[in-house]
Simulated scan of single mutants.
Amino acid sequence: MSSRRIIPEEDDVDTLCYFLRLPQVISICLAFSLVASMGNERGAVGNWCLAIWCLCFTVTVFISMYECFYCDWILPFFWYKLPITYACYATLFCLLTSIMYPIFYVQYLPYGPSRDRAIAASAFSCIACVLYAIDVAYTWKHYKFKNIPCYVHTLPGLLKILESAVACVIFVFISNTSLYLHQPALKWCVVVYSICFVQVAVAMLLKLSGWENRLPLRLPIFHLGQTMLSFLLYVSAMVLWPLYQFDEKLGGQPHWYTDMSCIDELTDYGCVWDQRLAVAILTAINLLMYVVDLVYWTCQFSVGTEHQPSTPYPLHSQGVSLQSSVEP
């Protein structure tokens, strides 16, 4: 007899997720194939979008196969949090590629087959974004109806997802090392982005694995200290990056038309000045999210409560699976 009981509501959400994942895989595969068929013409931004689509395709197929072949097993207690967390990331990444690829690459392509394929790839990326968003919305509604706690349903969880997603986009742009190698202050900004991203990744892994309660510090103190450090680091980046990128006295380029990559024929990285501006805007966005995160954990610490997003998970701390908690 199977060790996993399937209740009607769970069966419904699984059925819809299976129904959505096939068009998700097809849309991502088509976007990937169209850009890959462009060969060396796809540019650096195209390579990054290609990597994102490839990752989404691989993870979606893995999750589908895992649930298909191991649906009768007792899944790890953290498994049910993984698909919706991944769907949130996939929604954001597909949205970002749908915006980045046309703005930073497609518009510079000459009219012809390559431009048509790039536009079609952007359209399929938009379709995949919508499909992943439906997946998130339906699963979110299902978990809320069943009173199932999930990290991405909380304000800190949403902020961590957004902070890490924005940091990934920053990494896409700073992969062009000519943006910062000429100035030590700009190199420091790259270090800031890396340190803060690692901190967010560690916090996410601790939460999803259920190991957060094993920390020697109380959760409000741990998150407050981590968020305060990231906030201060991003403040320094918010000052240094625009100053050294756009101040002519410090070797920057204050105007778009002074950058030859924006007025000459398409280069491997597209318009470099636009990428400098994009990193500055993304830095400001992440700084704003760290401010919200800092306010939240300051309030949690000031009221002296230990009611954190991880404590409402008694099943997790006891290592009990979600499926085994269902009454027979």
Rank of each mutant, 00 (worst) to 15 (best):
A44E: 04
P220Y: 00
W211M: 11
D247S: 06
R5V: 14
W273H: 08
P314F: 01
P102M: 09
E248Y: 11
Y290T: 04
V272G: 06
G210Y: 00
F104E: 13
L224N: 04
A167I: 03
P76D: 03
P102G: 09
S122W: 07
L240V: 09
C17M: 14
Q275S: 15
F78E: 06
S164C: 11
R276W: 14
S209D: 03
F62P: 01
G157Y: 02
A284H: 11
W241A: 06
L20A: 04
S325P: 14
T60E: 15
A87T: 05
P8V: 04
Y257N: 08
F69T: 01
H316G: 00
S114V: 13
V166P: 02
S27A: 15
K187L: 13
C49Y: 04
A165R: 00
L181D: 13
L277R: 10
I127G: 00
D268W: 07
V25F: 08
I103F: 15
P254Y: 06
Y296H: 10
A51Q: 05
A280V: 11
F197A: 15
K249F: 12
I148L: 07
A90C: 10
S98H: 03
L233E: 08
S302N: 02
D12A: 13
C262V: 01
T15E: 14
A201Y: 11
I263M: 09
Y18E: 04
A123W: 01
W79F: 09
A90T: 08
V25S: 03
T154Q: 14
T177R: 15
D274W: 12
D12I: 10
L181E: 12
P76F: 00
A36D: 12
P113D: 05
G270D: 15
R276D: 11
L288A: 08
C68G: 09
P328K: 13
N176I: 00
L155W: 00
I127S: 02
Q199H: 05
G46I: 07
P309T: 04
D11H: 09
S261F: 03
V172C: 10
V45W: 01
F301A: 10
Q24C: 07
I285R: 06
H142V: 03
L16Q: 08
L232V: 12
G157Q: 11
V25C: 02
A133P: 15
P110E: 12
F78H: 11
K207F: 02
P83K: 01
S64P: 00
D247Q: 00
W140C: 11
S37C: 07
Y193Q: 07
T177W: 10
Y143M: 13
T91V: 14
A165V: 03
T139M: 12
I74N: 06
V152G: 03
H142S: 01
I170S: 14
Y193W: 05
P254I: 02
P220D: 03
P314Q: 08
V172W: 02
Y70A: 03
F19H: 00
